[in-house]
Amino acid sequence: MKTAKEILEILQKKFPEIEFSLVEDEPSDQIIFTDALKIHEICEFLRDGEGLKFDTLMNLSGVDDANGEKQTNDDGSETIVGGTLSVYYNLDSIELNHKTTLQVSTSRESPKVESVNLIWRAADWHEREAYDMLGIKFLNHPDLRRILMPYDWEEGSYPLRKDYKDPEFYQGMKVPY
């Protein structure tokens, strides 16, 4: 059993060049915030490291933080410019019976996060879903296709973004019918 603080200290010791911080909100679980482009090696260490042994990825969620600048369009809809998208990793160790949560953020305009698919195969479909819903590109993912939406859904149209607008047509059919 390790708390988020103890895990954070271990990580800071192992990776002195990477920035970590602890997000503490009541009443939530404490979250370790880190770098989106270093997440692969961090996760590899979390899985194999002595006293950590996070052997499963319970959940991986993409989130639109909607913290950019909101611009109102002529038709009354809103577009968000700038700000970040986040990915949350909920890890669990069956062996040592402890849990932790990681968070990484990436820019809204070109969201790139390293894939953890090779560490936990469970991440494969979760990452595809995050790509499908929010357009987060997972680097080194072997098969990054849409998963729940149709494969030919409009390029650059991601439903779970807070400023999402239905495309007008899909395959020649009017969408808001």
Partner: peptide, 21 residues
């Protein structure tokens, strides 16, 4: 109206671990 924050709650569904983030 919960306060600001996040939670991951998991339960043992008949089919496996059902988690709400």
């Amino acid at each position: 109206k919960p306060p600001k924050g996040s939670i991951y709650q998991r339960v043992e569904n008949p089919k496996g671990e059902l988690g709400y983030f």
